[in-house]
Write a protein that binds this DNA or RNA. Structure first.
Lengths: 93, 93
DNA sequence: ATAAAGTAGTTTATAATATAAACCAAACAA
DNA sequence: TTGTTTGGTTTATATTATAAACTACTTTAT
C-alpha cells in the first residue's frame, strides 16, 4: 500500500538541496544557502549526509581567494530522488 | 521558492494515517495499524499528535467487549493536508 | 476456577535527527 | 593592526521517531 520513504531524502533541507541540484549542472554552498534559506551549519551537515550517501559529489575549490564548495548530483542521487518522488505519490495520490 | 513543509505532516507514519483518513469516513486503530504496518506504540503516539493538532478526531468506543479507537479527519486536517501536498510540489515539481 | 494466551491499546525509555550556536581560518577594510 | 566579513565546520541541544515494556481486559484451555 504505502511505499517506504527514503529517510535521507525525507528531510526538508536535504530535499530542497536535491530539488535544486536535479535542475542544474552544479551549485555552490552560497547559492544553496540563499535558495534554501538554511543556516550555514545546517546546510553543511546536510550536504555531508547527502555526500556520504553518494547522492551528491562535493568539490572543494576556490573562487578567487575565498573557499567555494561546489555540489553536483550523482546518478545514484538522481535515481534515489526519482524513487522518493514516486514513493511519495503512494501517500499523496 | 520552497514552501515550508508542515512538520506535523512531514512524517512517514502520520502522513500515511492522514492519507488513509482523507479517503474514508472513519477508520479504527486496528485498521490503521494493518494498513500502515506500524507498531501499536508508534501509531498510538502519532494519532495523539494528530489529534492534539486538531487534524483528526478520536472517538473511544467498544466493538463488542473490546476497546475500539475510531479516527476521522477534521476540516482543519483536510486543509492542512491539502496545503502540505501543495507545498511538497514546490520540491518535487 | 484458574492459568495461559490474545486483543487493544498507552506509557516510557532510547536512539536517531534536525538545528542553531559556537567556533575556525582566511580575506578585506579602516 | 584591529575589527568585520566570508565561507564554511564542529559540537551541543532540542525535537522526533520508535520500540520495548506495561496496563487492562477478553478468550480459550485445563
Amino acid at each position: 500500500m504505502f511505499r517506504e520513504l527514503n529517510p535521507l531524502l525525507h528531510s526538508e533541507l536535504r530535499l530542497a538541496v536535491m530539488s535544486i541540484l536535479i535542475g542544474v549542472e552544479s551549485a555552490d554552498f552560497v547559492f544553496l544557502r540563499k535558495q534554501t534559506g538554511a543556516t550555514a551549519g545546517n546546510l553543511s551537515v546536510q550536504i555531508d549526509k547527502l555526500q556520504r550517501a553518494g547522492y551528491i559529489e562535493v568539490e572543494k575549490t576556490y573562487r578567487g581567494k575565498l573557499p567555494c564548495t561546489i555540489c553536483r548530483m550523482t546518478d545514484t542521487g538522481r535515481e534515489a530522488f526519482a524513487e522518493y518522488v514516486d514513493a511519495l505519490k503512494s501517500y499523496i495520490g
